[in-house]
Nucleic acid binder design. Structure first.
Lengths: 231, 231
DNA sequence: GCAAAAGTGTTAGCTCTACACCCATGC
DNA sequence: GCATGGGTGTAGAGCTAACACTTTTGC
């Protein structure tokens, strides 16, 4: 590792070479019927000025999950309700500075209450549609591709997509989340039957008037943290 | 990190503390209608004398997958045909020596041609039934539990279990692999219909006489490396 | 009154599951 | 000849997928 400022500061020594360990988070949300993910513009070298996943170095006494959450909060001000480990990425040479093993995470959040702000060594933080990503630093394009595949793959054997819903929602909104994710139209009656049979949503009793059409019933999740898996 | 031999040898220095990175492999096979996995008896501290997953430290220029394969070969003499990353385990304190992040792997192999021998810093290598595991070093019980869940979970949306088959096999043997994995009986006619509809096995034309009953048709995989995933 | 999304059941096709008997061999 | 696993088809149940019209609102 080349220390730019002072060689005297290199005070952590080991008998064998050690790689650095980072976490990187792929945070998805749905905004305006488009699947988006959060990127930061790097404020430091390497790849200064490029877009990258939020993430950073693991503290020596910190759990991996905690590191992912902390780095996301520091760089973007976001604390997502769902965070799942994706896997470790460690090809030699993926970081020009030194050998770095990155543990990648998949996170999901509703678009509401996601006040994104750049912090720390992020020059900027912004949402990008997965269909129009900028050039990415490191191997982050690869990590995003895996995260996307994992998300889509879990759609039809779990209720993971419910994590993208705000506090309250209509069945139409829920259907649009699914249609956005699978990028196809879904039959309305079949979808509503399926969703209601899950026993994971309940009507609040309220109606939501929005636009020039009949008002929709409002629902909430019965248990926000429960993700059902069915084979 | 305490260097037992010489402090002068601690020559790899960094500006910030770095964890060590290891890989550990959960290698499953099926032997005598029992799902077994490979463990080594540790020859060095910590946990000297306990059983543990084969694995070890990542070389600084080595890919993670390569490290898993190498350590498995060094310690047990085995080169499994299937190796898939399971995830990173990194709870602080999981290794008493220093902070260690372990990238765990799931491996599958047919029992044939698995000449296991202890090597390197393994005092012994042996197969254990997943139903009768010894006390395990580190957090390896947790890793094994995840590997087992992952294997079972993939059973009915992929043909991953075919990786447990030897070069040639009968439909009865294939069925017994599945019955061992799900730990339940499966209807013979339904299973055979399913297996043959996959178009992943082909009859060699040979018959196998084994025991006092009608000889069985012998099959092989049409493409050993192809693992079909169906939702 | 018209445009736009909300809401609601039924049917046909397909997949999944349950189930029983004859065959070829070794002893 | 008997015990053992190999090999084969069909029918009912359950699930999935296709499909159209009425309702309530804003303008």
């Amino acid at each position: 590792m080349a220390d730019p400022s002072a060689n005297a500061a290199q005070s952590y020594c080991y008998q064998y070479p050690h790689p650095a360990v980072t976490t990187d988070v792929v945070l998805f949300t749905i905004h305006e019927d488009s699947l988006q993910l959060l990127l930061i513009e790097r404020g430091n070298k390497p790849f200064k000025g490029s877009w990258a996943l939020p993430g950073g170095f693991l503290n020596i006494d910190e759990d991996l999950d905690a590191c992912a959450a902390r780095e996301l909060a520091e760089e973007t001000g976001v604390a997502p309700p769902y965070l799942e480990q994706l896997g470790a990425f460690g090809k030699p040479g993926r970081d020009p500075r030194e050998r770095v093993i990155s543990v990648a995470y998949l996170a999901l959040a509703p678009e509401t209450a996601l006040a994104v702000r750049a912090g720390d060594d992020a020059a900027a933080a912004a949402w990008f549609s997965v269909k129009a990503l900028p050039a990415l630093a490191f191997d982050h394009a690869e990590i995003i591709a895996l995260a996307h595949r994992r998300l889509i793959g879990k759609l039809d054997n779990s209720t993971i997509a419910f994590q993208l819903l705000p506090e309250t929602f209509t069945l139409g909104e829920l259907q649009r989340v699914y249609e956005t994710l699978v990028d196809a139209e879904i039959d309305k009656r079949n979808f509503r039957k399926w969703a209601q049979a899950l026993e994971q949503i309940e009507a609040t009793g309220e109606l939501r008037r929005r636009g020039n059409h009949r008002p929709a019933r409002v629902y909430r999740l019965t248990d926000r943290d429960r993700i059902t898996r069915f084979k």
